[in-house]
Simulated assay, not measured.
Amino acid sequence: MKITIQDQQRGAELMQTLIQKAWDSAAFKDQLIKNPVGAIEQVTGKELTLRDNKKIVVEDQTNDSVIYFNIPAKMNLDELELTEEQLELVAGGVSPAVVGFGVAIAVCWAVSHL
């Protein structure tokens, strides 16, 4: 799957929208935690189908007395397909970790392309 800069931007915008709605509405935050797919479908107006038995886990991290630490899945960079734009960034000195951020946006990309 190739992820473009525009895909990353749309994914980031969706994430910002979901976070803002969760901050603004306790009911939406509760729905997002209990049924993330349904909440995302409600916001986007599009059906979300997750492949390979994937699931979305939403954790309420608004308690400022707790420090949250997320261990992301280990990436297999050998199987990563980069766009020409991303290849240029890597060639220009951007680390694979930054490119990995683009891969992390994949869920949002999938939602934004439904």
Rank of each mutant, 00 (worst) to 15 (best):
K2Q: 14
K2R: 13
I3S: 04
T4P: 03
D7M: 00
Q9M: 13
Q9G: 00
Q9S: 07
R10T: 07
G11S: 11
A12F: 14
L14I: 05
M15S: 06
M15Q: 09
Q16F: 02
L18C: 02
I19R: 11
I19N: 10
K21V: 00
A22P: 01
W23M: 12
D24G: 02
S25Y: 11
S25R: 09
F28Q: 01
K29R: 13
K29F: 11
K29D: 11
D30M: 07
Q31P: 00
Q31V: 00
L32R: 07
K34W: 05
K34L: 05
G38L: 03
A39I: 06
A39E: 07
I40E: 02
I40D: 03
E41Q: 03
E41P: 00
Q42W: 10
Q42R: 06
Q42C: 03
G45K: 09
G45D: 09
K46I: 11
K46F: 14
L48W: 04
T49M: 07
T49W: 08
L50N: 06
L50H: 06
D52S: 08
D52L: 08
N53M: 09
K54D: 13
K54H: 13
K55E: 13
I56P: 00
V58E: 15
V58H: 11
E59K: 13
Q61H: 05
Q61L: 04
T62S: 15
S65D: 14
S65E: 15
I67W: 09
Y68G: 00
F69D: 04
F69K: 06
F69N: 05
I71F: 14
I71Y: 14
I71K: 11
I71W: 12
K74A: 10
M75Y: 09
N76E: 11
N76A: 07
N76F: 11
L77K: 05
L77N: 05
L77M: 08
D78P: 03
E79I: 01
L80R: 08
L80T: 01
L80A: 05
E81C: 01
T83L: 04
Q86G: 04
Q86K: 01
E88T: 02
L89M: 02
V90F: 14
A91K: 15
A91D: 15
G92W: 12
G93D: 03
V94P: 04
V94M: 06
S95H: 06
P96F: 04
P96R: 06
P96N: 14
P96C: 03
P96D: 14
A97N: 06
V99G: 12
F101A: 05
G102D: 04
V103I: 06
A104Q: 08
I105W: 13
A106F: 15
V107M: 13
W109P: 01
W109T: 02
A110L: 12
A110I: 09
A110G: 15
V111E: 13
V111I: 05
V111D: 11
V111Q: 11
H113W: 10
L114M: 04
L114K: 02
L114T: 03
